[in-house]
Design a binder for these strands. Structure first.
Length: 919
RNA sequence: GGCUCGGUGGUGAAAUUGGUAUACACGUCAGACUUAAAAUCUGAUUGCUGAAUAAGCAGUGUGGGUUCGAGUCCCACCCGAGCCACCA
């Protein structure tokens, strides 16, 4: 027999396969989705882990008779393409498409079933026109709006970043420190969906708990109360803020709190430096100080502001507010530990029961009042941070004294404040609206036109002012009407010739011919939006785009981004593989999109994936993240050249649980390669190849096994098995492994599935070894390690059902083995399958079914314990009752020794498992 | 500080969900085959006492608890990872 040569086998096998899926076929569907990839250049080991391993499940599902749809595409817009253009003068488009071509070739070497026929490339006008369509729908519904706020700004990439893309105060792409800059840009009102995006306790879909909790924390729903504090000394001035522009905010500062029950402990008020009232509240003698403070805090980067050892800073404004509950006058301070974008940007300072307020009060010598105590009569002063309590008993709070908090004090206080009209219950979210404008080139153009003329006409007609960001946009001081591009004019195509060099202006602004456009509304000169959409917009719905047409049918005249009948049939995705790093970004955004698309009636699902599975990370052999600078990159192409794609796939499946973060182990892959070689060689031991074909082995269903004495008796009287050459042990191993491998793949436990096949192989090899090439075995009766736990296998295991010695591996066994291995190692199994003289592809075979009766052994090992300690183990017939077990166990000399010849006081019996005597 | 996972041999990890702890693999050691090496095959491999493939004791981060029985459940603590975080 020729040596196993992966490179030869793999190319040959791959040429046999076709992966395109006809989405219109009836029957059981299985939509397997893996996060599509960014076309960064070459496939690395992470791609193999992410794509080749889920293919195991795809292949199993296929063999189980499902129509498996596992489409692929590229998340092709994004910064690296543009940076390559800046650095090396290659156009982003050319760079991207070159990479795509190269990566697709590399993808092929995985031998996976991914379908490229429905491919999605987000940088195709054909794709991003639907981004634009969705954007316009959102605009129509008021979910896309233009706003001017302080935003995360990356000075290196010259673009705004969403909150989710700021990691520890640094840009997720380039690692530069993010600064806060006031920028006008488009937002999506994801906050309107905050409630719907919150995960319930027992969700209907199977998504990882850490993800669900993470998203809920990020959404950060908090129920509290907004309390109004009268500003002392200012009369009848409108102190409206752009957050609360209501008449009732006259003379008032509104603070948000979750702990209203501590209001008697308020000794000061703090507002954020960005708070619009700062100017009005600052008295002349504090003006200089306050202005300076605001300046320095603005200069601080996000990083400094949040990580500077929580050292509190702040200044007094000179003004005071009055605490409504006790009419105490308390000073108003400005401090940057208050976050303007959360709540109302104003906080009541309760140093007696909040550690941050305590630190602030200590530093600036402000009064500290105890309002929560360990005991109702405790009046000891609050002196250290340990004395600051959030729960306990209310003290020094008038009629509320003596109540326990949080319950019932919190509720009572809420009621009281609402009744007096001093406070209003309010739900706040940590989640912010999603900023989607990017000041970059390689993305979806925002389908909006700005027209001065339209605004002038409109504002003449309109007697009322419109809302900035909804109707008009301020550009260099002029008002422009926001005119959405009409649907018929989509897509707004990205111009090819632009100047990419960052110069503080979006690159698209340099394409003047493109920018200048006739207003679709009035026909006058107008201009296009020169920014592009965040690429997370692209990836928020791509899984629907895969479902746009049935193979070989017209793709034209699309009315929607997808075919509704196909979506109805194929959604939701059955399993979605991806990285845990997308917990707060991509997966949250795409849930939002799906809920939005449902709200406009074009789809009818709440969650888009039935199950979500995270993959782990393959580190370099040194345990560091693989990177060129570490010099620890393991190139999958090299490994494939050395060991073959099958071995790489198998190793990635075997190295541990799928979500494991573990280093690449060069020894590990040699181990699985060795396994494949043994599978290859076992071909020679298949009985029919040495003894001729025929006598087809097949298991048929029949009556239940009933063995009186499995230790001694073979099964030749049963008619369960037509192939009498299979022993009861053979059947046990085969059926047990079928069960285990199938269940483990579905449970995403690939490592133990592989282990189970290794065990069976060990069993089969030992069997072949005993039989020997010409019956000359060197170990005729030694029971193998693998089979020993069955019990007395020297008697049971070595005799076939017809009583003759088992001689070799049967065709049934070997072919079943190949089928189980096929999803993991599709190439080698295909080749061996052909060598077994099968005509069809092994991947078109159906997955073997196991027979539960064979999964159970006839002989089980009964563990015998005395006082819970294992003292002996006996091979016994399966299913024996307690009486019989006791008799056998008590006969054991070891048991007698530990029982000391006294009868046990109590006996615990677990059928087919153990018996425990309590002395 | 909050949330979510984890902590088992020299290493990656298993453990039928409360029932023989360490499956499978790597590594190491020994043996066979070789002039030799590689490859392959066979065996050993949790620690301690023992000549032992006899027998026993200990053993899943630490300390307690529940139970006939705990890696698994409960309580307290220690350590590590990931995410979030002056969110009032």
């Amino acid at each position: 027999m020729v040596k196993y040569q992966p490179s030869k086998v793999e190319e040959k096998s791959r040429n046999k396969w076709k992966n395109e899926v006809d989405l219109s076929v009836p029957g059981k569907k299985f939509y397997l989705l893996v996060e599509f990839t960014y076309p960064s250049g070459d496939l690395h080991m992470g791609h193999w882990f992410a794509f080749a391993v889920p293919d195991i499940l795809a292949r199993l599902k296929r063999m189980q008779g499902y129509t498996v749809f596992a489409p692929q595409g590229f998340d092709a817009f994004g910064l690296p393409a543009e940076n390559a253009a800046i650095k090396r003068g290659i156009h982003p488009k050319d760079w991207t498409y070159d990479n795509i071509a190269r990566m697709k070739k590399q993808f092929a070497s995985m031998g996976a079933v991914y379908d490229w026929e429905h491919e999605v490339i987000t940088s195709e006008p054909d794709y991003y026109r639907w981004n634009q369509w969705i954007f316009l729908k959102m605009y129509e519904k008021g979910l896309a709006y233009k706003g001017k706020t302080l935003s995360n700004w990356c000075p290196t990439d010259q673009t705004v970043l969403a909150n989710e893309n700021v990691e520890n105060g640094k840009c997720w792409r380039c690692g530069s420190e993010v600064i806060q800059k006031e920028v006008e840009q488009w937002f999506l009102k994801i906050t309107e969906y905050a409630d719907r995006l919150e995960w319930p306790d027992g969700p209907e879909v199977d998504w990882p708990k850490p993800l669900r909790e993470g998203q809920n924390n990020w959404i950060g729903k908090s129920e509290g109360i907004e309390i109004s504090f009268q500003v002392s000394g200012i009369r009848n001035q409108v102190l409206g803020t752009n957050r609360n522009p209501k008449p009732e905010t006259r003379n008032q500062i509104i603070a948000y709190t979750k702990f209203p029950e501590t209001i008697f402990g308020v000794t000061y008020m703090v507002i954020a430096p960005e708070h619009p009232l700062v100017g009005q509240l600052t008295t002349d003698e504090h003006k200089k100080e306050v202005e300076e403070y605001i300046k320095t805090s603005q200069k601080k980067s996000e990083l400094e502001r949040t990580s500077l050892e929580k050292q509190k800073t702040g200044v007094f404004t000179g003004s005071y507010v009055v605490n409504p509950v006790n009419l105490q006058k308390v000073p108003i301070w400005v401090a940057d530990y208050v976050i303007f974008t959360y709540g109302t940007g104003a906080v009541m300072g309760v140093p007696g029961s909040d550690v941050r307020d305590f630190a602030f009060a200590k530093k600036f010598g402000l009064e500290i009042i105890k309002v929560i105590a360990k005991k109702p009569d405790d009046q000891s002063p609050v002196e250290t941070a340990e004395d600051v309590l959030e729960e306990g008993w209310i003290v020094n709070s008038g009629q509320f004294d003596g109540l326990a908090t949080p319950d019932p004090a919190k509720g009572k206080m809420m009621e009281y404040l609402s009744e007096k009209d001093w406070g209003k219950c309010k739900v706040n979210y940590h989640l912010h609206d999603w900023s989607v404008s990017r000041q970059r080139y390689w993305g979806t153009p925002i389908p909006v036109i700005y027209c001065v003329n339209c605004w002038e006409v409109k504002s003449e007609k309109l007697k009322v002012k419109s809302v900035e960001g909804k109707d008009y946009s301020l550009i260099e001081g002029d008002r422009y009407a926001i005119v959405p591009v009409p649907e018929k004019d989509l897509p707004v195509e990205l111009p090819y010739d632009v100047d990419f060099a960052p110069r503080g202006k979006p690159p698209l602004a340099t394409a003047e011919d493109w920018v200048r456009v006739k207003c679709p509304n009035c026909g006058e000169e107008a201009m296009r939006d020169v920014e592009t959409l965040d690429t997370f917009f692209d990836s928020s719905w791509y899984f629907l785009r895969y479902l746009r047409y049935v193979l070989n049918t017209s793709k034209k005249d699309e009315k929607l981004p997808f075919a509704q009948d196909l979506v109805a049939k194929w959604m939701p995705v059955d399993i979605y593989f991806g990285g845990a790093e997308h917990t707060l970004g991509h997966t949250l955004y795409s849930r939002f999109f799906v809920k939005f698309l449902k709200s406009i009636g074009v789809i009818n699902i709440d969650e888009y994936a039935q199950r979500r599975v995270h993959h782990g990370v393959i580190l370099g052999p040194d345990g560091q993240r693989m990177s060129k600078s570490h010099g620890n990159v393991v190139n999958p192409d090299d490994e494939v050249a050395k060991y073959g794609a099958d071995a790489v796939r198998l190793y990635l499946a075997f190295l541990g649980p799928y979500d494991l973060v573990a280093p690449w182990d060069p020894g590990g892959i040699r181990g699985v390669y060795h396994f494949l070689e043994r599978v290859w060689k076992l071909f020679e031991a298949v009985e029919e190849l040495s003894g001729g074909y025929g006598n087809e082995a097949r298991i048929v269903k029949g009556k239940a096994v009933n063995v009186k004495d499995a230790k001694r008796q073979t099964l030749n009287e049963t008619s369960l098995v037509t192939d009498k050459r299979l022993t009861i042990d053979d059947l046990y191993w085969m059926h047990k492994t079928i069960k285990k491998v199938g269940e483990d793949i579905e449970g995403i436990k690939f490592n133990t599935a592989v282990a189970a096949m290794m065990e069976w192989l060990n069993y089969l090899s030992a069997k072949a070894h005993r039989a020997g090439p010409a019956g000359s075995s060197s170990h005729p009766t030694s029971s193998t390690k693998s089979s020993s736990h069955i019990g007395d296998s020297s008697l049971v295991g070595l005799r076939a059902l017809d009583g003759t010695p088992s001689v070799a591996v049967t065709r049934t066994e070997y072919e079943t083995f190949l089928k189980l291995l096929a999803p993991f190692a599709p190439h080698i199994t295909e080749e061996l399958w052909e060598m077994m003289q099968n005509k069809k592809s092994i991947h078109d075979e159906s997955w073997p079914e196991y027979d539960g009766r064979f999964v159970k052994t006839q002989v089980v090992t009964l563990v015998v314990q005395v006082n819970g300690k294992v003292r002996d183990s006996l091979p016994v017939k399966a299913g024996i009752d307690q009486k019989e077990a006791e008799k056998l166990a008590l006969a054991s000399e070891k048991v007698q020794r530990f029982l000391g010849n006294k009868p046990p006081q109590k006996t615990i019996f677990v059928k087919d498992r153990l018996i425990n005597f309590v002395a």
